[in-house]
Design a protein around this nucleic acid. Structure first.
Length: 335
DNA sequence: ATAACTCGTATCCAAATAGC
DNA sequence: GCTATTTGGATACGAGTTAT
């Protein structure tokens, strides 16, 4: 069984490399391709995970006095447990028609396609997530929040923003936000990116950032491909989706990237912290009496919970729709 | 020497939606 | 009904690296 080698390991300190060593000893790609024979690999990963848990427990105890650190440590461990989040893989029943969204092509040996590329397309889940985010933002900025504004040509003449708030950006500029909702896995096991196994949002953030913010040319043609290990090599210029807005000083373009497994990128985190400060983390009377629960006594916890729920619902609905469609076509085939 | 693999870029695709 | 725009993943491909 070939060991994976990675340029990422060059980034890791000896301690971190040792921490990752158990994960590197197995070739997930080759194993999972063997038609669902994944149980042994998961057992091995679970064993490896227990050592990781010991290390993380040390970190959590060190920062014990900070409740948040411990809370996040617990959350990290909890969602990392065996089969947590497995519903996102939404494997179709064996023998059922495989997911075939594109051109009738049969794909998806592992079932991830339901969360990647359902027949409904992506617009549905993107829009419901955007609506949820806009609702949270409206609770702070009110009608200043514009969703998919029609009169955007003045500050972004090449791309229509998902959400825009006048005066909410850096130094009172116009905030221009683009919501992205991506999956860190691929339905093709060979295409699952390695970076995502080491870095948060590692499989989604680089490409999305290149789309939104573009790429500066680096190096020259003939220098070879970009090398993450030392930053050398050639990177071609790539035009940003928001090239116009980025070129202006009165706009602040932000990429709000979410992953189907529930993660938020740092820009979303900053946005929520910004909104929290704006309302001093206080709930309005109506929010407090009608909307909050015992577990969400602050603005941030309530709105973060709502955002998280909306995210999971959007992902789950796409999967559920896909599975219903698959079941329906199966019934039709039987009848 | 060669096959297998990794990584990044460019292009393609089906579907949803808005506006007409 | 039509077109234009936007969505995120799939696919092809080139170049470099590693294992055998």
């Amino acid at each position: 069984m070939p060991l994976h080698t990675s340029r990422e390991q060059d980034f890791l300190s000896p301690g971190l490399r040792q921490l990752h060593a158990p994960f590197r000893a197995v070739d997930i790609t080759a194993e999972s391709a063997a038609d669902f024979q994944q149980l042994s690999i998961f057992t091995e990963l679970q064993d490896a995970h227990s050592t990781l848990l010991d290390d993380y427990d040390y970190v959590a105890r060190t920062y014990e006095k900070y409740d948040r650190a411990r809370r996040e440590a617990v959350r990290f461990i909890a969602v990392s447990q065996y089969q947590a989040g497995a519903f996102l893989n939404a494997a179709l029943a064996r023998g059922a028609p495989t997911c075939s969204a594109r051109g009738g092509k049969v794909q998806d040996p592992l079932g991830d396609a339901a969360s990647n590329i359902g027949r409904l397309g992506h617009c549905g889940r993107h829009n419901s997530l955007l609506a949820a985010l806009a609702k949270v933002m409206r609770s702070v900025w009110g009608m200043l929040v514009e969703v998919e504004p029609r009169d955007h040509l003045g500050y972004s003449n090449d791309y229509r923003p998902d959400v825009s708030v006048a005066g909410a950006g850096r130094s009172r500029s116009r905030l221009v936000g683009d919501v992205k909702f991506k999956d860190s896995l691929s339905s093709n096991p060979e295409d699952v990116g390695q970076r995502g196994a080491f870095v948060g949002l590692g499989n989604t953030e680089p490409g999305t950032s290149a789309d939104v913010f573009g790429l500066e040319q680096r190096g020259a043609v003939g220098d070879g491909d970009f090398r993450p290990s030392d930053g050398g090599g050639y990177v071609a210029y790539k035009k940003a989706d928001y090239a116009h807005a980025l070129s202006r000083s009165d706009t602040d373009v932000q990429m709000y990237l979410f992953e189907t497994f529930g993660g938020w990128c740092n820009a979303v985190k900053r946005l929520f912290y910004q909104m929290k400060d704006k309302v001093r983390n206080k709930l309005s009377k109506r929010q407090h009496e009608d909307e909050a629960s015992w577990s969400t006594q602050s603005w941030l916890s309530l709105q973060a919970q709502r955002m998280s729920v909306a995210l999971q619902l959007a992902a789950a609905e796409e999967i559920a729709t896909e599975l219903r469609l698959a079941a329906a076509s199966e019934d039709a085939a039987v009848a």
